[in-house]
Each structure stands twice: as C-alpha cells, then as structure tokens.
Design a protein around this nucleic acid. Sequence first.
DNA 1: TATGAATGAGTATTCATTCAT
DNA 2: GATGAATGAATACTCATTCAT
Lengths: 202, 202, 202, 202
Amino acid sequence: MKRNERKEMILESAKRLFSDRGYYQTQISDIMDAADVARGTIYQYFKNKDDIFTTLLESYLKRYENMVSEAILKLDLKTITPIEYLRFRIHTTFLFFAEDPDICNTLLRMGLGLPQHFDSVILRFEQRITNIITNDIQLGVNNGHVRPGLDMEIAANFYAGAILRCAYHFFGGASRGMSRGDLEAATHKITDMIARGIFSTP
Amino acid sequence: MKRNERKEMILESAKRLFSDRGYYQTQISDIMDAADVARGTIYQYFKNKDDIFTTLLESYLKRYENMVSEAILKLDLKTITPIEYLRFRIHTTFLFFAEDPDICNTLLRMGLGLPQHFDSVILRFEQRITNIITNDIQLGVNNGHVRPGLDMEIAANFYAGAILRCAYHFFGGASRGMSRGDLEAATHKITDMIARGIFSTP
Amino acid sequence: MKRNERKEMILESAKRLFSDRGYYQTQISDIMDAADVARGTIYQYFKNKDDIFTTLLESYLKRYENMVSEAILKLDLKTITPIEYLRFRIHTTFLFFAEDPDICNTLLRMGLGLPQHFDSVILRFEQRITNIITNDIQLGVNNGHVRPGLDMEIAANFYAGAILRCAYHFFGGASRGMSRGDLEAATHKITDMIARGIFSTP
Amino acid sequence: MKRNERKEMILESAKRLFSDRGYYQTQISDIMDAADVARGTIYQYFKNKDDIFTTLLESYLKRYENMVSEAILKLDLKTITPIEYLRFRIHTTFLFFAEDPDICNTLLRMGLGLPQHFDSVILRFEQRITNIITNDIQLGVNNGHVRPGLDMEIAANFYAGAILRCAYHFFGGASRGMSRGDLEAATHKITDMIARGIFSTP
DNA sequence: TATGAATGAGTATTCATTCAT
DNA sequence: GATGAATGAATACTCATTCAT
C-alpha cells in the first residue's frame, strides 16, 4: 500500500469517528481499529490526536473554499438576476454539506465547543460563511436591489444561522440524505425567504 | 451553611466553568476550587460529574419554559397584531439569553457535540424553540396572515437557526452584553426580516 | 497513615530503586510496588517521575551541606593542626557516604551522564566538594603550611576525584559497608597521601 | 560505498551522539540522521542499539590497551627513573583522552550508571587503570622507591580517581581542548603530587 | 455532613525492531 | 545490500470516583 493511501485511510476512519462521537469520545484505538492500522503507524503520519483532527478541519475549510470558488466560475455574472445569484450561492453550500454528512456533522455540531484551539478553525468557517453573505448583500446594495434599512451585520448572522441550521436539518445527525429533487425545492424555498427579507421588490 | 446553599454554590461554579471551557475541559478540581468545597462534598450532592451538567442543562430548559409561559400572560391576546406577537416572542428569547451569558454559551455552543446523552437535552431545547415558531406560524396561518406556499418545517428550522445564531452573536462568546436600547432595535430588525419572510402583507 | 509518611515512603522506595537501577531502568510501577502505593498516589505527591528524582537529589545535597556545617562546629579551630583539620574534613565526607549507600551510589555513579537537567544537580555537588578542598588548601596557604608551586585548581580536582573514588570504592556498588575501625584507618591513609602531596613539611 | 565505510560512519555518528546525550537520550533516528543512513541499514550492521554502544565501548578499551602497550615500547626501561616512568604513564592516559573528547565523555561520564550490562565494560576500563597503577607502584616497591606503609589498594583507587577526574576536567564536558604546553605542565604537576604521595624520597 | 487521601481504569505517546520490496 | 513503512510492547500520566475518619 502506498504511503498516501495509508494516511488517507487513517483520515477517512478518523473523519467518520469524529463525526459520529466527537473528539473526546474518539480514542486512538478506535481509529486504529477502523483504519486497520497499528498504533505506531498513526504516529508516523500524525504528530498526535490533535494533529489528525486539525488536519481534517483544515481540509474541510479548504474543500469549501474550492467548491465556492469553482462554482462561481460556472456563473454568467452578466445576465444572472440577484435572486438567481442568491439561490446559486445557497445551493453551493447545501451541495457541500450534502456531499459529506461527516463534514456536515463535524462542522455544524461535533466540532463546536471544543477547546479554543480547535474552535477557532470552526469559527473561521462560520466567519467565512457570514462574510460571503455580507458580500453578496453588499452586491445587492450596490445594484440597488436591497431594501433600505437592512442592518447588514445582523442580516449576515441571521441568514448564516438560518442556512447552517437548515443544512444540519437536512444532512446532519441521523437524517442522512435528501433526494436531488427535494434539495432543489428546499433551495428555492429558502432563497425565497431570504429574498423577501432583504430585497426591496419581492 | 445550609444544605441548599452549598449545592447552589457548586452549581453556580460549575455553570460558569462549563460555559467557559466546556464539559471535558472542566475538571472536578476546578469546580472544587471555584466553589471552595472539598472533593467529597461534591459527591454528596451529585452522583457524578455528568449529574452536575445534566442538572444544569435541565434547569436551563425549565427556566426557559417558565420565562415563555410567564411572558405570555402579560399579553392581551385579543388586541395584539401578528407582528407584535412575533416581536414579543423573539424578545422573550433574547431576554432569556441576555440575562445569563453562561446559559447562552452552554446551550448555543459548549453543550453542542457532546455524547448523545447530553446532546439530547440540548436537542430538546432546540426542538422546543422550533415548536414554538411552528405553532406561532400555524397561528398566523389560521388567522390568514401567513403567505401561501410557506413550508412550515423548513421555515421553523430556518428561523430557529436565525434567531439562535443572532442570540449567540449578541450575548455569547466574548461579546458579553448589549444595551437595552440596542436589544430593542435588534429585536425590531429581526422581527422585520421574519415578518417579510412569512407574512403575506408586509 | 499521615500525609508525610506516605510521601516519605515513596521517596524511600524510589531512592533505593534509582540507586540500584538508575533513572531510566526504574519504572513508576516499580516505585508503586516497592512503596506499596497506588499509581495515582504517586502523582498526588509528585508532579512526575522527574520530580521524584530531583527531590531526592536536592535532599542529598542539602544533607551533605548540613553534615559539613554541623561537623565544623565540633572542631576547636584554635588548636587544631592543619593535618588534623584535613583528616576531619575527609572523615566527614566518608561518613556521609557510609551512612547511606544509596546516596553514595546515586551521587557517585547512577546519577552521572543523565540529561543536563539532572546532571547539573550532581555537578553542583561535585563543585561543592571541589570548592571545599580549594578553600581548605587556601587556608593552608595562608598559614604557610602549603608547599610553594602547588597548582590549586588542579590539586582541587585531583584530590576531589581521589576522595570521591575512594568513597565509591568503600561504600558504593556491591561492596556495601566497612567497619568503623577500617574507616578510621582508611581516612588516615588518605589524609596522609594528601598531606604529602600539598604540605611543605611532611 | 564500501561495506566497512558504512559501518564506520554509523559508529562515528553514534559515538558523537552517545557522548553528547548519553545512551537513553540517543535515538536510533538520531543516529540515522547523523550517519545519513536508512533505518534498516543500521540493523544490517548491528544487532541492536545495545550492540552499537557495546561495540564502541569495546573499541575504546582496545584503543587504550593499544596506546598503553605501544607507548611502553618507546621507553628505555633500563635508564628511566621511577618518577619519569610515572610521568610517562600519566601522560599516555591524558593523551588518550585528549585525542578524542567523545571517548573521554563516554568513559568518564555518560557511560556511567548504565544498566549492569554496559557498566561492566566501563568497570573493566576503570579496573584496568587501577591495575596499571597498582603494578607500577609494585614496581616501585620492588625497586625500593616506594615509602613503607603505603596501602596499595587504597592508593591505586585514590590515584586512579585523581587522574581520571583531572582527565575529565581537562578534556571532557564543555571544556574541550588544552594546549600541548599546558598538557605537559599539568602532567608534571600531577606526577609531582603522586610522587610525593608514594615515593620515599621526593 | 464534610473532608481529602487513595485509588486504578483508561489513554496518549514513544521508540526499538522487523521485513517485504 | 539498502530501504523505510509498519509494528506493538512498554510506559508515563490523568482524573473521576470512593471511603475511612
């Protein structure tokens, strides 16, 4: 087995376990067993347990960034309407969580409330989502689509919370999976609620 | 010192610590020190560490229930408009978290991702919030104020997430505190966003 | 059992083990067994294994200092001859090692070559011995008893090495113990060799 | 690279490391890195870590033996005076340690206090030194140069300790190096101290 | 009731050694 | 011969819980 395959296997197993049980409930022996690897092998690829978790967390962030930046390329920014733009953004985020329930669970639940050290990575993710929303609203403001009187800071947090909770509701916890069609429908409904909240003309 | 004073002191100290560091980062010795109580004493009032945390969690839920049901009594349900009713509900929830940052932190951050056993208590709280919102919307539906086509399940999760995250943004983490006036303003803005999202006439 | 008795018992057991096997060959479990104490108990009295060893080492130094300073009080410095003074000093050091073979072994053998951190404590002990000798020679110089041309630095190291090796030869390793009479005789012989080496008139 | 060059390289690196950090502080990986050799390669030349250290220790002893026996050939035993003979012996030992600070450090410090197994090699070295001294004194006794009343066993240990400590003082630890002239001078002084201690006429 | 010394199961981590390529 | 990924026994340390005083 190639070097990277092994490392990947450990990460894969750890990802699942951290998602299911959280950081403290996951023992090195659990990861060993799941990855079918000896104790020492884990420490050949990672400095310690912390390192495994951090590596995963960072990869989730990177993956989200990639997904967002790749998605945007598919858009024809010239012709797209504000509401279509909004819907597309939300869709991307939902797709991200739909693709990997472990990431969903970790980022949206199990990774929360951990020591400062880990939590800060999650916070960066949340910050990123909030930033995207803020920027998107700002874009609408510039284009004159956003209703006057909207408090940007509050709105960003408000809709970030809304979207993230819906994501967890759809893809996280026990309720794993959602049909393609349902996802489209849900995206529409959610976009609708946001549009009504921020745009001047419904 | 009276029996209940002691117990209260332990709970008080544990509350703060769990809120600051989370369940696993808080040691019995920390609670001992903070409560200025001997190790054995803690085990005279609580079966184990788990019991302390569960006791706190349950008390938070109870307190929220009390607050909600007491608040409703102050309302004149005959004359109140749907939007005022909504605003009042949100205000109650914000007041709850504003009153005690430790509860806010625990319920909205540190308590998340814990083993099934604890998490279920938190889930009950989230469920409760979502239920209240669902019921309130249902009330609006019955009265003909809610726009047609609104998906109740999604909307309930959507706005629950929105409100909870705003609560954490205002009162949780490091950003402890918010002036009375700001709270009123924020409540207005948030109510506004929700109203636009669900009511037929803005 | 009183608090300090326990701590003393752990130290006593550790002292013997470190002396017999050295630092790395001594496991916490060995100390546990020897002291008839549970694992956790050791960590209630000491921060870690290192702490146990350092505590012992420091106590040896302190004990030596006490012995040296108490011994000097018994001397009538007015009437004593230089050679008697020298003999007395050597006798004190031999007595110190004769009293406790574990200290002898640790300070003169097992404690050597350990990481900087420990070694420095031992070095302090060796330094102390060398200093005493240097001072004593200086005393002889001032009184005109020391032969001209003696290199103080070399002499101090020379005789420190000589005395310490003899101490180890007599009381260290397997050869534990030496009769009172033999000790006196050896002290005389050694004093004689030193006196011949440093004094002007034999 | 030839087979023996490799082995030599490993030994060379290990020698330095054992001298600097001691046996337990030196990891196989350190030796790998220093010798620029793969992990498995080390085990092709040596049975285990122990084997490397023992090989080195044995080579030190052998080297000392060679040096001593080669040196003696340069002497005209017919005409040499007892004191010149003594000086020559001490000089040889100092030269041995001066030539290689790593050997000095290992034999005189880092190698001490190791498990029985290693320690016995060092003990053999110390024994050898003591024997040489004993024999040399015996020679003096036979020739009538040694003062009556000298205790051979004690004297041998005494002067072995003295010489070895001076060697460590001059060449070991941090104080690496000593000029040719200083070495000669020191040898003279030390020989002088020994001569005064054991010979009948100074 | 209050105490705090004692406990030991549980856990992460190290590192010499092996062996298939 | 050389390599270095894989191994797992060994070990230090933690911390919730107990119980005699």
